[in-house]
Amino acid sequence: MRTPPTAALAAHRTPLGSLTLAATDEALVLCAFDDREQAVARIARGDLTAVDTDAATPAQLRIIEEAGRQVDAYLEGRSRTFTVPMDLRLATPFSRTTVERLDSLLPYGVTGTYAELAAALGRPRAARAVGTALGANPLCVVLPCHRVVGSGGRLTGYAGGVEAKRFLLDLESGGTPAASL
């Protein structure tokens, strides 16, 4: 019987709250507002075994540390992009297609609606499916699902909460993000 590869888990504190980061030896697979139990379940669905950082490989630790540095730089307004290697194995096929295109369709500082994103993906009637796909984004913040808003610019659901979404949008628009959430 084959032993599934591992993904090391670590909590990373941010102004938005705690993010759970998880990495294989090759890439970041999770950056989410999930608690440990939710993260372990997500990782298992990706045919991985979750381990704590004390059982992590040096490669896993390097990726987690780099992801943490990049998240911090982004949230402090010092960076607009992420270069850490990413793996979307925890996403469904439709979610993967949706989140992979976010940065090109909605670059830093630009928002769009669920309906606009659905149309850009060639599925103009799939606004709700797009919302569901974004809600399952395994690389929150890193792959910018926060840039998608409801019709008329309404702030709607976000895994980290509407306040976190507002923080991220304020940050990207050059405004002053809320001091604490």
Rank of each mutant, 00 (worst) to 15 (best):
R2Y: 13
D54T: 14
G160A: 06
D103M: 00
A50K: 08
P5E: 13
G161T: 04
F82E: 01
A23I: 07
T6Y: 08
V141N: 02
T132G: 08
V99E: 04
L143H: 13
L28E: 00
T92D: 10
A8C: 12
G153F: 07
A120T: 05
A23L: 09
A10H: 13
V99T: 14
P5Q: 08
A44M: 00
R101V: 03
G153D: 06
A91S: 07
R154T: 10
R125Y: 11
T98E: 05
L117Y: 12
A11H: 15
L121C: 13
R2M: 14
C31H: 03
L155C: 02
L169G: 02
T53A: 15
D87Y: 06
L117H: 12
T98N: 05
R78G: 08
R123V: 11
L155P: 01
T176Q: 07
P124C: 03
G150E: 04
L9F: 14
H146N: 04
D103H: 08
F82P: 00
T57V: 03
Y114T: 07
L155H: 05
L169K: 02
G112A: 14
R128N: 14
L61H: 13
A159P: 13
L30S: 04
A129E: 15
A27I: 11
V141Q: 01
D34C: 06
A91N: 01
L88S: 02
Y158D: 02
G161S: 03
Y74N: 02
G122A: 04
R42L: 07
L143Y: 13
T113M: 08
A23Y: 10
F94I: 05
Y158G: 03
A44P: 00
N137P: 03
T81V: 10
T176I: 07
C31L: 01
T57E: 04
P4T: 12
A10W: 12
G175E: 10
E100F: 04
Q60L: 04
L90F: 10
P5F: 04
L117S: 12
T6A: 12
L30M: 09
T81A: 12
T97S: 14
S95L: 01
V130P: 07
S95P: 00
G112S: 10
A32P: 00
G150L: 04
R166H: 05
A23K: 09
C140R: 06
V99C: 04
Y114E: 07
D87E: 14
Q70I: 07
G153N: 06
